[in-house]
């Protein structure tokens, strides 16, 4: 979206990338999701998913936990309360944009 675009209440620029929105959409439905499964669900590569998860974790929207299973270290991801709220606000903002009812600020 161009920088000059109207700011929509609840719209979260961090979730503008489709893969990030998809990651959050999965995480609000589950307790935890494994890195490889998130990658598969969103059809992204390892490096792209890592970057997205780092950005979301740095912003406090998700938590990353490492655990060992079958001799391999796996990364498990869960949404934070802040992340859940921001995701729902962002989706509501998208729906208002689609409905043509977005209120600029």
């Amino acid at each position: 979206m161009p920088a000059s675009a109207t700011i929509i209440v609840g719209f979260e620029p961090l979730l503008q990338a489709a893969a990030r929105l998809q990651v959050m959409a999965v995480l609000v439905q589950v307790e935890q999701a494994e890195f490889a499964r998130l990658k598969e669900l969103t059809s992204t590569s390892d490096s792209v998913m890592s970057k997205h998860l780092s950005a979301l974790a740095d912003a406090g929207l998700i938590k990353l936990t490492k655990a060992t299973a079958d001799g391999r270290q796996r990364t498990w991801v869960s949404v934070t309360r802040t992340g859940r709220k921001m995701f729902h606000n962002h989706v509501a903002a998208l729906q208002r944009i689609v409905a043509g009812a977005a209120d600029p600020i």
Partner: peptide, 15 residues
């Protein structure tokens, strides 16, 4: 913006 929002919601629905 409307088209982009529609695409975003479609991506959410797909996942």
């Amino acid at each position: 913006p409307k088209e982009e929002a529609l695409l975003a919601l479609a991506a959410k629905g797909e996942v």
